[in-house]
Design a protein around this nucleic acid. Sequence first.
DNA 1: CTGTTAGCGCATTCAA
DNA 2: TTGAATGCGCTAACAG
Lengths: 337, 337
Amino acid sequence: MQKKLPTIKEIAKRLNVSVSTVSRALHDHHTIGLRTKMQVKALAKELNYEPNQTAIMFKQRKTFIIGVITPRLTEEFFSTAISGIEDVASKNKYNVLIAQSYDDSEREQQIVETMKNSRVDGLLVSVAKNTKSTEHFDALKKYNIPVVFFDCVPEQPDLNSVSCDLHTGTIEAVNFLAAKGHKRIALLNGPANLPASNQREKSFIEGLEKNKLKADPALIVETDLSKESTYAAVQSLLDLKSKPTAVVVFNDYVALETMQYAKSKKIRINKDISFVSYAHLPVCNYLDNPPLASVEQFPYEQGSKAMDLLFNILSDTNESRKPEQIILDSKLMTWGD
Amino acid sequence: MQKKLPTIKEIAKRLNVSVSTVSRALHDHHTIGLRTKMQVKALAKELNYEPNQTAIMFKQRKTFIIGVITPRLTEEFFSTAISGIEDVASKNKYNVLIAQSYDDSEREQQIVETMKNSRVDGLLVSVAKNTKSTEHFDALKKYNIPVVFFDCVPEQPDLNSVSCDLHTGTIEAVNFLAAKGHKRIALLNGPANLPASNQREKSFIEGLEKNKLKADPALIVETDLSKESTYAAVQSLLDLKSKPTAVVVFNDYVALETMQYAKSKKIRINKDISFVSYAHLPVCNYLDNPPLASVEQFPYEQGSKAMDLLFNILSDTNESRKPEQIILDSKLMTWGD
DNA sequence: CTGTTAGCGCATTCAA
DNA sequence: TTGAATGCGCTAACAG
């Protein structure tokens, strides 16, 4: 329970002026006398007056709070994205409320409900993996709470979103390997039901074709992202009569497990088989054998741009603004300085 | 700007009852007729009525928001701690507002100000490295906003805090190395002005003594945590006539750099020189040569216990509650399953 | 330039 | 069991 703090009423009483005068003085309203303004400000400072934000939220129907929902914080991708969000938000005097869905659609739905009730001014969401429908977000429209999706964006038109197109990076990855002379390049992909997986596969095949390599279906395998599933997928590649000499892996985490497993099978990393991945985690810098390269998806930029977009929407008086999809290009990068 | 939503007044009008009746009905107040209660609830559901949290915050002088300030989110330690906080908070219907100080004391101060103005019910803080004074937190007492510090706790009595005592883990670390036959054990410590460094050094020396090893001052070196400084510190150890055979390193990040540098100097990791560290980052699992062991500081537990403590303080009617310092024991751990 | 007044949505005290 | 009235702190429309 908050303590009782000085209010404009208090200041008004002491100065024998009206509350509106005090309010105007504190806001540098143009219809205020310089003398009274000075007096009011002086007393305000003396009393350590601070406007009661909750009263302002209530009155203005505006909380200056942005809600952010991500699957988890501990994944560096998301904490970096949130840093981007927070930096932009704080520059605009907004606060950031966070919650984790743990990739659980139901929990996500519940969080949306909470955020709605606490009257956030807007929402930034990277959806849970198993979120298929966007119904629980549609409800927010009725409440005039704009949503901007980022990174993991629902497959649906007419949404505001910021995402990173994996196409360029994937093509670069295949080019990179092809340039090194690899002919049999495998794709260790994520679950087929993820848009992220489809994008990778599509671009991967396109990359092969561009390099006049034919796509062998046996070289495209899939993991549900669990360790066991990844191991099985890798093993299936190793079991092939004609093994791949290079693998494009779903992301760095999976790549770490993949390489660990391969190593245990006496495969020499990046010699017998080369690896390229997605995410470009800084920590791979410290590996003895990191993937040769990794597709950067710019989480900080995604976060900050999503926040920018949300602010644009919020400050847009036009009610029926067209949804905007901002798409960044991914980029193949190495860990060299 | 929020849209106009159904209010209790609206429900009251439609049902030809008073607003107070509606309010009571929705709260299952005991002085309410069953019939009217049912009617009210039915209509509330039909209209999709949701109580306006901002009005409640305003009226009740309570926001159900907890502010969390950490140096940065991208460090897994902190994002894990925040997960602990968020899990406990959401179980108690509280929301979590986050902000990063980037280890800058001034920025931290500014954030405290913002949080104070947005009337958070309480604050959880892991202070910036260069924060010496706690003045900016003292101010919060006047506003009745309790603060619980965690992990990086100011050296000052009479604070509420949750921290992890490095003593046990450090002793275990030295024992561990001594048991492996190491006689010359070095400490690559952090900046001397950090409490965290002092704790390590004190316990380190105690550990040596317990193992009847004498502490050689030349074996205690220091890094300001920058890569260059770390390299220099490592080099100074390698330059010794009588090199250490084992090093206790400030944390895993520093250890990664240390080992990378040592490797470049043809030192065989954990053969020529063994390494033990602090933090126990999961990602070290994937290194070819992780430190042999690392002192776990239980960020999730620190976060959740700090949140628990804050709730206890918040629900404590007793104004002058004694400050409580909760101290967890650290623990030396390896990355083996 | 300044004062008066109303009202945001809700909980709550006092009457009935 | 219910209603009427009040006020939380602030902004803003309107009147002077």
